[in-house]
Amino acid sequence: MTEFGVETRADGVGVVTPEGRLNMVSARRLREVLVGLVERGTSRIVVDLGETTFVDSSGLGALIGGLKTARQAGGDLRVARVSPAVLSVFELTNLDRILRPRPSVDGAFDD
């Protein structure tokens, strides 16, 4: 089962770190975590995929849903530290153009 690290930094950015597989089973929990952050007032979110070993269409759907939720609240969702295996899925689906992976969590909102 995928574990999720969740923290809100001093600068107001929420960081979610899924550890393991981001698939049909864990995508629902990711959606809940992202919506919960936004509901508590954290609309700038970084999903740190450095510990994510696999992502399927359900996981991608959860990320896109989180992006939509964050943007509707006036924020944004960024992904960082994307592993090569997960990046290849992003590239195959062209989601790397929408979620534009960042090299680090700390610099995800620097632009």
Score class of each variant (00 low, 15 high):
3 E>N: 14
3 E>V: 06
6 V>M: 10
7 E>R: 15
12 G>I: 02
13 V>Q: 05
14 G>M: 07
14 G>F: 08
14 G>S: 09
14 G>L: 07
17 T>E: 13
18 P>R: 13
19 E>W: 00
20 G>N: 12
21 R>W: 07
22 L>G: 07
25 V>A: 14
26 S>F: 08
27 A>K: 05
28 R>Y: 02
29 R>N: 11
31 R>L: 12
33 V>I: 13
34 L>Y: 04
35 V>R: 14
35 V>Q: 12
36 G>K: 06
36 G>T: 05
37 L>W: 03
37 L>V: 01
37 L>S: 02
38 V>L: 02
38 V>D: 05
38 V>T: 05
38 V>F: 02
38 V>G: 06
39 E>S: 12
42 T>M: 08
44 R>M: 07
45 I>P: 06
48 D>A: 05
48 D>V: 04
49 L>T: 05
49 L>Q: 11
50 G>N: 01
51 E>R: 15
55 V>W: 03
56 D>Y: 02
56 D>S: 08
57 S>V: 11
60 L>N: 03
61 G>K: 06
61 G>F: 04
62 A>Y: 03
62 A>M: 05
63 L>F: 02
64 I>H: 04
64 I>L: 15
65 G>P: 00
65 G>M: 09
66 G>V: 02
67 L>Q: 08
67 L>F: 11
69 T>Q: 13
69 T>Y: 06
69 T>M: 06
71 R>F: 06
72 Q>A: 14
74 G>V: 09
74 G>L: 05
76 D>Y: 03
77 L>E: 01
77 L>S: 03
77 L>F: 05
79 V>K: 04
79 V>W: 06
79 V>L: 09
79 V>M: 02
81 R>G: 05
81 R>H: 11
84 P>I: 02
85 A>W: 01
85 A>K: 03
86 V>C: 11
87 L>M: 15
87 L>V: 01
87 L>G: 05
88 S>E: 15
89 V>G: 11
90 F>E: 03
90 F>H: 02
91 E>S: 13
91 E>G: 00
94 N>I: 10
96 D>T: 07
96 D>N: 15
97 R>A: 04
98 I>N: 03
98 I>A: 03
98 I>F: 04
100 R>D: 12
100 R>H: 10
101 P>D: 11
101 P>F: 09
102 R>I: 07
102 R>N: 13
102 R>D: 09
103 P>M: 12
104 S>C: 08
105 V>L: 12
105 V>D: 08
106 D>W: 08
106 D>Y: 12
108 A>W: 11
108 A>Q: 08
109 F>E: 10
109 F>Q: 11
109 F>S: 09
110 D>P: 00
111 D>G: 15
111 D>Q: 13
